[in-house]
Write a protein that binds this DNA or RNA. Structure first.
Lengths: 269, 269
DNA sequence: GATAACGAGG
DNA sequence: CCTCGTTATC
């Protein structure tokens, strides 16, 4: 099973790039963030044409998450939104159990700037995500939390760590919040597969950051240990970032070996 | 000599289409309208790369005219704006003497709707253009006035004349104003070459007007009789209108035989 | 149905 | 730098 995560930065604007990439990369599942579209306008038909059914949780203009799964895969126990979300809150979380794996797709708040209310909200959001794990799941289950975390875990995940240290996306408080999440029982799948590899998933549109490869690895797949044991590779596909009018994020692809998971290990809600 | 006129509807948005077309159609001169860019941001370098120098008279957001000429052609007596233009008026006229031919590039006001102040301004603008001809030129000189006139001369120039009759772009008052201009001593070069041909240069973006070929011929090249005698063909190149994200106008191309014009016939200002 | 400006968000 | 929503123009 191949599970991908991609912040598409508007699914309507990126639709052709997305469908081309699906055909070429052939993931079984793609978790998308920043779809920026209301559910009624989500391009389900275009994804259907290339063989995917969609589960969607979007809104106008901002945020929005979706999961597309190859036809034939089982999709159960869809959950839209984080526990404790207010009405009309930003739509940033969508979970489903796909072929026995609990896939939790997240678009963590950006945080805007350190010290702002948005930054506090980001930290609180990560803490709420941890609370949801504690309340609903166990670390011995087959669980992946993937998406745009808007946090780089370590200095190796930042092209210019000295410049970024203390900034939003690489601030100690954010890394601590991410660390607390992982302490529950999650492994950074990319880092587990590639302990010393320098690779990035996001490059600012400005200043030719992609051309100079000045990026950050902020798109992550965090997996429980039983699922980590099945991960055979994690890669970041930079080719879509090379196109005209790309998303600022590249897709992350996790390869998972067939599991003979005993029944009951991958719960719904 | 091949002189083209094209309302590009934003030269920055259309830059690639424009340069491709210049390479393919190889005009000696192209008069452009609705460049929609300030002179400091005009893409001179891109036109230079394909062999053209630019004379520009543009503004932010709206209007703006430019003439690009193949390197090596003589360009003299550039005139920016119509006589009597107030400061900061819409930039709609740019003239230059190119290889002895006075080329007057115009973007006639659209007129918005019949009966509005914009409509009166359009009629007055055409009258001012006639005054400028009377004040500065003689009909025995080599003169072309080309551009987006926002008026279709005759019913044959309108795909649906009954629908358009009395509307802006095909209103009797506009046609009378155009007629008065021509009475000074100008010939519609396209119609002179093709007395019975139905061809259009503009199609509304809406309602699939281009697909259904429901257009109007509002982009004209008006020439004095001595220059008309040198016109061997006039064509409208609809291929750029077929592209993705096209201008709503197609380029008009006038072919002019080499002239042994006596000195002094093509004045500056 | 295209263009543009503007301000917000990233 | 790129998206969005809005407003204005053609």
């Amino acid at each position: 099973m191949r599970i991908a995560s991609w912040n598409v930065n508007s699914i309507r604007t990126r639709l052709e790039q997305l469908t081309s990439w699906l055909v070429r990369a052939a993931p079984d599942v793609v978790c998308m963030q920043e779809t920026k579209v209301e559910d009624g306008s989500f391009p389900e038909a275009a994804l259907s044409e290339v063989g995917y059914r969609s589960v969607i949780f979007g809104q106008k203009s901002y945020n929005g998450v979706a999961i597309a799964t190859r036809f034939g895969l089982s999709v159960d126990d869809v959950k839209k939104g984080l526990d404790g979300d207010e009405q009309d809150v930003a739509r940033r979380m969508l979970a489903a159990t796909i072929e026995g794996i609990r896939v939790i797709n997240v678009y963590v708040p950006n945080g805007q700037a350190v010290g702002t209310p948005a930054f506090a909200y980001k930290l609180a959001w990560l803490e709420r995500l941890r609370s949801e794990l504690e309340a609903r799941y166990r670390p011995d289950q087959q669980i992946m939390i993937c998406g745009d975390f808007n946090v780089a875990p370590e200095a190796i995940d930042v092209a210019e760590p000295k410049k970024w240290e203390g900034q939003v996306l690489f601030h100690p408080d954010e890394r601590a919040a991410l660390g607390r999440l992982m302490e529950w029982g999650l492994v950074d799948a990319f880092r587990a597969c590639h302990p010393a590899k320098e690779a990035y998933s996001w490059w600012d549109y400005r200043m030719g950051a992609f051309r100079r490869n000045k990026g950050l690895r902020i798109d992550l797949a965090l997996v429980t240990r039983p699922l980590a044991a099945r991960c055979t590779d994690v890669s970041i596909d930079t080719r879509p970032r090379e196109l005209q009018r790309p998303s600022d994020h590249a897709p992350v692809v996790v390869e998972i070996a067939d599991g003979d998971a005993p029944p009951g290990v991958a719960p719904g809600a």
